[in-house]
């Protein structure tokens, strides 16, 4: 890997709500290098989308962001003003959203919406913007690209719209691309195609990619690094194969039990689930937030501090149980 693109340390997001202060993201850190895919995994409400919006500077007005470090291409983006941040967005960092059906403006043609981001960040040349748009529409697998430029979003299917969104994100040749659940709203066959496409484009253009998902099946296929989030914190992170082969945190183990793994899951075997619901994140929070859903919880968990246990090669998890204790147990996938 040549060079880090994005480095974030101790990122928190706080949102004032009627009941007090909501802490949806509580001290997240990660880094992405050129050509690397980082997958942020977690269930709904764990703060993964807000994390990405915080990086893009697109948080809702009421939300407050704080971080010890947020460096993009060696530049501190914490103190950037909105005007300077807007120069980066869509240019060197771009984003793909979860909702392809509503993320394009219904009143303008595809060509107009693709061109405008190029005209804003690269150069004032309509012809060049058009050529770039046709080139990228072909790249993302849209047939007769040139004639599509004059079409409106409602004339395209959901999968095609997401392809257009991907092309739009690539218009200015970004260094970093953030995809927030890009396939969730699509049907299964299209999901695989879009995912494959994203991975391919990321390799071809050597971009850093942050892929946000709740689907571990997706992670297994494309991720270099995995970061598992729970209740606004990282509970486990590491290289993809390591985390999949030897998950250390009870939550990661629970998630992995929920998906069939080729070669490991037997025919007729029941898939697991993680019982319980995510905790409320309003007010003062302490200890391990997973303890009320955890099979191994003890009284000590309520007083746990955020000190990850490091396993080497970047693999780390935040749980009181010692590595020997975990690996001494029978295979995680076999426990019901």
């Amino acid at each position: 890997m040549s060079g880090t693109i994005l480095e974030v340390e101790n990122l928190s997001v706080d949102i004032p709500v009627a009941a007090g202060m909501l802490h949806p993201v509580r001290g997240i850190g990660f880094s992405v290098s050129r050509g690397e895919t980082l997958c942020i995994v977690g269930e709904s409400g764990c703060g993964k989308s807000l994390t990405s919006l915080a990086v893009m500077g697109l948080l809702p007005k009421t939300a407050r962001r704080s971080a010890d470090r947020m460096e993009f291409l060696g530049r501190d983006i914490r103190s950037l003003r909105e005007r300077e941040m807007a120069r980066l967005r869509g240019g060197s960092m771009s984003m793909i959203f979860q909702e392809p059906m509503t993320s394009l403006n219904p009143s303008y043609t595809i060509g107009n919406q693709l061109a405008e981001v190029y005209l804003r960040h690269v150069e004032q040349s309509r012809a060049a913007a058009r050529d770039r748009a046709v080139f990228l529409l072909e790249k993302v697998g849209i047939s007769s690209a040139a004639s599509r430029l004059g079409q409106y979003p409602h004339q395209l299917s959901g999968g095609q719209r997401q392809r257009v969104m991907i092309a739009m994100a690539l218009m200015c040749g970004p260094e970093l691309i953030i995809a927030d659940e890009p396939t969730t709203a699509l049907d299964v066959t299209i999901q695989a195609q879009i995912l494959h496409l994203l991975a391919e484009l990321q390799r071809e253009f050597r971009m850093g990619m942050i892929l946000i998902t709740h689907d571990l099946g997706i992670v297994a296929r494309v991720a270099d690094k995995v970061q598992v989030m729970y209740a606004g914190k990282t509970v486990e992170e590491g290289p993809c194969e390591t985390v999949f082969d030897a998950p250390m945190h009870p939550y990661t183990q629970g998630l992995l039990r929920c998906i069939p793994i080729p070669g490991r899951t037997q025919r007729g075997e029941r898939l697991g689930s993680v019982p319980g619901i995510v905790p409320n994140l309003v007010g003062e929070l302490s200890g391990c937030m997973f303890r009320n859903r955890c099979d191994y919880a003890s009284d000590a968990c309520a007083g746990m501090r955020d000190e990850p246990t490091r396993m080497g090669d970047g693999h780390a998890y935040t749980c009181l149980r010692a590595p020997e204790e975990i690996s001494g147990e029978p295979q995680a996938a076999e426990t019901p």
Binding site: A86, S94, M95, F97, S103, E116, V117
Partner: peptide
């Protein structure tokens, strides 16, 4: 509050363009 306005902002468009081109027309 719509998704396409979030997209417009994610594209780094100027506030005037977001407001007048993308929002007002709709």
């Amino acid at each position: 509050a719509s998704d396409y306005i979030r997209t417009a902002r994610a594209k780094g468009l100027s506030p005037a363009s977001v407001l007048f081109k993308h929002a007002l027309r709709n």
